[in-house]
Structure formats: C-alpha cells, structure tokens
Design a protein around this nucleic acid. Structure first.
Lengths: 344, 344
DNA sequence: GCCCTTTTCGCAAACGATTGCGAAATTTAA
DNA sequence: TTAAATTTCGCAATCGTTTGCGAAAAGGGC
C-alpha cells in the first residue's frame, strides 16, 4: 500500500506546523486561524488527497467513531433490516460498525464482546442478548454505552428498543377468538430469550382475559426459533390428543414448520388447523396459504436504537428511556379460517 | 468507560519496562525473555484483565487486522451467507470486518471505500463491483489487497471468486431443451454487472450451440435484479406477440416477478409458461410451483474469497489465481413443465 | 506611538503499542 | 579466572493525530 499522505506531509508542503494543519482541517477547532492559512491548507490537503487516519485520531481522542453490532446471525432474515436501520443513522454521522455473529452461543458472545472492546468501539448495539446476560451488564456498568434491540436484558438498566409483544400477541389471540377459535394452542419460543418469554406471558394473560379454558398441554415450548422446532412442537401438540383448531406461534419460522408438519399428517392449514406467525419475514405472502402474522418494525427498531446509542455516546448525562416500545401490526393472510364457535 | 489496563500498568505492577511486557505477551517475539519473567507478566496481565489496544498496535504496525466488506445490500438474501463464509475464515484469525452497503450507487461506493481506507483496513472484499469500476481498480493498484466475490471487475488484475455462470446457464438451457422447450425467452440482468452480462452471453452461446432460432425480442433486459423488473420484463415479453413456452431468468427474484406477472395475465406457471431462476435463495421450495433454479455456493464463495485475501495480505509475493470459479448445481422443482417438442 | 488585549500559530506532550539498538547480566569457552 | 559469546531487558523513537500552553504577531484604545 503506497504510504498515505499525513498531516506532516501537508505541513511540509505549506510550511506550517502540523498542529496548525490539524486545526485548519478541524471544522470545530477551538483555536482560530487566519482564513488565508486555512484556505491554503485545505486546498493542498485536497490536492494531495489527504485522508485522516482514524486510528491515530481515535487513539488520541479515545473516540473511534466505531460501534459494535452484535447479532445472533446475520443470515437470519430478521436481522438485516435492523442492520440497515442502524446504519441509516450511524453512517451519515461518520460512524462505522463492526458486526459480529454470536450464533446464540454465550461463550462466543463473550469472545466477541472482547473483540469489540479491543477495537475500542464507542458503543454497542446488542440484538442478541439473553434475558440474563451478566457479561454484557458488566460491560455496560463499566461505562460502555449500550442499547439492546429486538430483545432485552431483564433487571438491567440497559435501554432496550423492543416491539410491542404483549400488544401483538393479544391482538392475534383476539383475532383468532373473533374468528371463532376457542381451542388454541401456542408454540412458544425459547424461554431464555426475552421475546420467547414475553410472548408466552402475553399469551397466558390474554387467555385469562378471554376466559379461555386451555389444558396444560396447549402450550409447547421450542428450544430454537426455527422450522425444525416448529415441526417438533406441532407433532407433540398433535400427539397430545387434545383437539385444537388453531396454533398461535411465537414466530414465523415456527409457524412455517407447523404448517409443514400439519401437511405431513394429512391435515390442511387452514381447513383443519389455523396457524399464525410473528415478525412477518419476507416472502410469507408468496408461501401458501399466506401466513397471517404480526409485522414488526425492524428497520425502525434499528434506527431508534442507533439514535439512542448516539445520544448515550455524545451526551453521557442525558436520560435515556429504559424501554422504547414500537407498535406492531396484524397482517391478515390466508392461514386463519373463520369457524363457527362452539356454544359455551 | 473505566480506563482499560495498558502495558504500562502491567509494567508498573511487575517492575519491568513496558517493552518487556510487550515482548512477554507477544507469542512470536524475536527477542527472548526469561521464562520466569514471562510467567510473572502473563499472570498479572491475566489478573488485571489486560486487553491489547488494537488501535495503538495497528497504528504502530500498520496492520489493523480489519478488512472491509463491500456489499450492495445486506438485506438482499444473497449476501448474508457470503458474509458468514467470509467471517468463518477471518474471525478465527483475529480479523474483524467492517461491512458497508453501497446500494448499487457508484457515488456511495466511492465514499464508502474512503471510509474503509481511513480506518486502515488491511484488505477489501468487494461483492458489489461494477464490470467497470475504475475507483476500485485504482485502490487496488495502490497496493490494497482486494478480491471480488460474486461479481468481477473486467480487464483488471483483481482476483475474483465467481460462480460458474456459463455452466449454470448452459445446464439450465439444456434442461429446458430436453424438457421439450424450443421457444425460450430470457430475462437478463443489468448489463452493468458482470453477472448480468455473463449470464446473457452464456444464454446466447448456448442458444447457438443448440441451434435454436430465437427472435430479436426473445430477450428482455432488466435494470435491477428485483421482482418489479421481473414483472416489467415479463409484461414486455408477453406483449411482444412472440409465443414462448419458457422464460429463463437471470436470477430468482426476476423469476418470482415473472411468475407473478404470468398469473396476473390469467396464465399459469408451469402449465402455460415454464420459468427458471438463478441463485436458489431461501424459501423457494415453499413458494408454488417451486422454482427450478441454479444453486450457487454463497458460503463457500465467501470462504474462498477470505482465504485468497488472507494470502494476499500476508504473502504479498504469492501468486493468486485471477479467477476462481465455483461449480453450481441445478435444482429441479415444479416450475418447468415437460412438453412435446414441436417437430422441426 | 505606547501599552494592553486579542488573535494566530508553534512547541511538545500525550494516546498505547512495537521494535532496533545497545548495555548489563549471564553463560560459555579457554 | 578471564575473556568472549550469548542472553535478557531497558531506552527511546515511532506510528498520525489532538490539544494545553505559551510566544509571537496583530489589533485596539488613548
């Protein structure tokens, strides 16, 4: 790599001291300079193709203009829009981001946060925390600006940008109820994740509200938010003997697995069993029978979390809302069938 | 942020000079130290929770252990697997990557490569170059290790990891031919991208090989690899008056758009028109009628490109293959119907 | 024209790590 | 035992930038 031009080069060229060059190029320098000098320096900087060395400036100022972005897996369709939302705020302000994939592995998470710290990130956006995540809480306590998005760490002061899970689940359950369903099963997400937990709780609460009487085995708990677990839970549900007319799934991929398993059993969605999802990942409209789901605002969640993080990084004294809850929206498609409710 | 512990802290604690600490912690230091001293330093480093400052070391050594990853858009399902492939190689070796999204905008690309240079990346993996991309060629010429993946810059010496487009297109066209199709349309990709171009050329070549006689308007050229352009091109094709029995699309999203447009015209895929895609993006198996397509190796492409880049970064004299071509595979699904070939 | 204030700019010390060089300490050889 | 060879470690410069401080220059008031 041909040696990049430095402040020193510009100083030599213009016959001033490097500190003067630094100030001339700093848009908000505290010391004032003659406009003539500034002009001269700026033009030769331009001419030589000067590009500030962010490493050096970061070393000196202790601000790297870099943020860490922790995800479970960028290949999970849920996360790229969040990333774009984050970048839409960060990039124009001169921040770059380092993305790491934890694969939902606490040990990896520990290694990766170390990587971020070694690189001196100014802040961290964490989209993959566990409900209990002492490692990250400790880092936050040490003063690292941090916000979680999509999920949250419980019993911590770390600001979280999340979706209105209680609202979404409640709306969906009411929707099923209004479509005549009374025997509704739930495939819950992993209970180590805040989303898995909050959606299950919302389900139970709404069941109470509606006065539904569900058996113990109406709820299957998955260990991962994926199609395989959707299939397994559906199999368990079907084999439990209880006759349900609908399954409310904690996430789209579980729902996709559920529909597949229903088909394998010679049944049909929605004719025999209605199924609903959560998140509204891409292409759901093209997959028959069209999954009725809850659309969450991924891009906006990313955007919001970046905005909060910038505030934390630049105004350490500012008060940041502990949780920011984004509204969700029910997307009606073909996977729910209206049935005649049993008279009670 | 509580001040991180530095070499100086360890030096003070152990009563040796900071340079000694540096050497003790450097696994492959050129100068030898007493094992006793090394041991003492290592344990106190451990005890204090030392974490090397990569900024400082990068500044001194001119190696940041960071690579830039340029994509059109991480939210495009094609790219996350490439990213994971890249990281699977880079991360274990201590590299971090900065991902930037060009959005297919040359101006943005210019800005973003500047961002990467300012941050002193050791190399760049570019998944979004144009067939002609003088800016990137210039950066490469200046000595920045660079490899392109998925696409390539023509007439440059920049190593490229690409898929076997000629092979894939040829195989697909033969497949359609063998299924009895003779009047085959093509929706080509943007001709500013190497993939759009190479697939179109492969189509033409194979048409020759097979001795097919296609009219001028058998080929529609899209301006973007997306569903909307797939619809538009299909509309143009249908309205051209020429009766085709199949459309070979340069990419899955074009094909999805094509199928949609075919349905809108009251026709059916595959009964009236067979359609094929390229790339094999997720969920294609779930979308009726199941798109027959060419599966490319995204993860491996990412992996290969990272391996090449590491070689370029660490062994500047090594000879790197100009192009690495990955094999592709035809995935048979339901979107192609076998028909009786017209006797010629 | 003189003194005081203000502006303009240079000096030098950081930031945290790496590394060539040489001095001191130790081992080896004679 | 002494000189030579080797090992072990400290010194100090360096990477490129920022910034407090002070000196020189310029401006202002009378």
């Amino acid at each position: 790599m041909t040696k990049p031009v430095t402040l020193k080069d510009i100083a030599r060229e213009t016959g001033v001291h490097v500190s003067t060059v630094s100030r001339a190029l700093d848009p908000n320098a505290r010391t004032s300079l003659t406009t003539e000098v500034v002009e001269r320096i700026r033009t030769t900087a331009e001419r030589l193709g000067y590009r500030p060395n962010r490493l050096a400036s970061g070393l000196r100022t202790r601000r790297t203009m870099t943020v860490g972005l922790m995800l479970p897996d960028i290949a999970n369709t849920l996360f790229p829009p969040i990333v774009r939302g984050v970048e839409s705020i960060l990039e124009p302000k001169g921040y770059a981001s380092i993305i790491v994939n934890t694969d939902g592995d606490p040990e990896r998470e520990g290694k990766l946060v170390d990587v971020l710290l070694q690189r001196g990130v100014d802040g961290i956006i964490h989209a993959a925390p566990y409900r209990s995540d002492p490692r990250m809480v400790a880092v936050s306590r040490q003063g690292m600006p941090m916000v979680t998005v999509n999920r949250q760490i419980e019993n911590s002061q770390i600001p979280a940008v999340i979706n209105d899970d209680p609202g979404g689940i409640s709306e969906m359950l009411h929707y099923l109820y209004n479509a005549g369903h009374r025997r509704i099963a739930h495939i819950a997400g992993p209970q180590t994740l805040s989303t898995g937990r909050s959606r299950l709780e919302a389900f139970k609460t709404t069941v109470q509200e509606l006065g539904l009487k569900l058996p113990e085995n109406a709820i299957a708990i998955s260990s991962h938010f994926d199609e395989d677990e959707g299939r397994r839970c559906t199999r368990d549900l079907l084999e439990s003997g209880w006759k349900f007319t609908a399954i409310l799934c904690a996430n789209d991929r579980l729902a996709l697995g559920a529909i597949d398993e229903i088909n394998r059993h010679g049944l049909s969605c929605p004719d025999d069993v209605s199924v609903t999802g959560y998140n509204d990942i891409p292409f759901l409209d093209l997959i028959p029978p069209g999954l009725t789901t809850i659309r969450i605002q991924q891009f906006d969640a990313g955007r919001m979390s970046a905005e909060l993080l910038i505030k934390m990084m630049t105004e350490p004294e500012a008060t940041i809302p502990r949780t920011t809850i984004l509204p969700v929206k029910l997307i009606e498609r073909g996977s729910v069938k209206r049935i005649k409710p049993p008279r009670s």
